[in-house]
């Protein structure tokens, strides 16, 4: 976020160069620049990250990242391996807490509330955020139990019937119900990889989160399963806000409305997907998207 073409961001010149204004400038400007997406600029931000730095021990993995995640939109994080996409994603639901020696600086706000605040209960925070991991990781329990676990520990169902309903609805939304409705009590690990990943998505949406974080959800799936999940993401967008990490440029282009390009721990460029893919400012973005490095 350091060098910018001056003609692309008149507002940045007007305002003082605080990280905050820098960010706002880039966000609104680049969004507008993409043809026909002017309306999106008015979308409220679900998550706002300001000056986020992450350290693993002495090693710094993220450098002053400023990023807004728009509500009810899909934001894609792209970038070469090891550039800190997963690390950023994990800052949002504080999964980095579980890693020894990991330190997060800066502020990440969910609906305006700093998630790193002392009085924030991390369990409650995570119950508002669903997460889908790179490798399908269903619990070695039944399909039903996999989905029912979250609602149960958060007390979202008053009785068994309600729980059944939540499970069915979540599986339906994840596009899995028809395939598994007759074997809800067989182990979740007995499903195929793509089905397992959809089960994990069902598990994530069963706790009615406001935000879903997906870390390369399709990396272990075949094109058909991938297509299904992409379709699903598009549907889920109406109810949830989604942040997705992907290595697949086409996928980012297909499913997301906003794209952020990370490189070596820096957020290089962020804007509407159309903008990033058709007319990026940064040469590195251009090179990465066209496959010249990565």
């Amino acid at each position: 976020m350091t060098e910018r073409e001056p003609d692309m961001m008149p507002e940045a010149e007007v305002e003082a160069e605080t990280p905050e204004t820098q960010y706002r400038a880039s966000f609104s400007l680049k969004t507008k620049d993409a043809a026909g997406t002017g309306a999106d600029a008015a979308v409220p931000a679900k998550v706002t990250a300001r000056d986020v730095c992450v350290f693993y021990g002495k090693k710094q993995a993220l450098f002053n990242v400023n990023l807004d995640v728009a509500q009810h939109r899909v934001t894609a994080l792209i970038g070469p391996s090891g550039c800190g996409k997963s690390t950023f994603l994990r800052c949002i639901n504080r999964m980095n807490d579980t890693i020894d020696g990991c330190r997060v600086q800066g502020e990440v706000r969910l609906d305006g509330v700093d998630v790193n605040q002392k009085n924030i209960d991390v369990v409650q925070l995570r119950s508002r955020i669903g997460m889908v991991f790179q490798k399908p990781n269903p619990f070695p329990k039944s399909i039903y139990e996999n989905v029912a676990y979250g609602p149960r520990i958060h007390g979202l169902a008053a009785n068994g019937r309600e729980l059944d309903e939540i499970v069915e609805q979540s599986l339906r939304r994840a596009g899995l119900f028809d395939e598994v409705h007759d074997r809800l009590h067989s182990p979740g690990t007995s499903l195929s990889g793509g089905q397992q990943q959809r089960l994990c998505i069902a598990r994530a949406i069963a706790i009615s989160p406001e935000l879903i974080l997906m870390d390369e959800p399709c990396s272990s799936l075949d094109p058909i399963a991938t297509a299904k999940i992409e379709e699903l993401i598009d549907e889920l967008r109406s109810r949830f806000t989604i942040v997705i990490v992907t290595h697949n440029m086409q996928q980012a282009a297909r499913v997301s409305q906003y794209t952020a390009f990370f490189h070596l721990g820096h957020l290089v460029e962020f804007g509407s997907t159309e903008y990033i893919f058709t007319n990026p400012t940064e040469e590195r973005t251009q090179d990465y998207i066209t496959g010249r490095f990565g």
Binding site: N93, M95, T98, V123, Q124, L125, R126, S127, G130, M131, F133, K135, N137, P138, F139, P140, Y149, G150, I153, H154, C200, R203, A204, A206, I207
Partner: peptide, 13 residues
């Protein structure tokens, strides 16, 4: 496997 722990933390356990 740590993935099981992550999954559980992920749903807010």
């Amino acid at each position: 496997p740590p993935s099981i722990r992550e999954a559980a933390y992920g749903v807010g356990a």
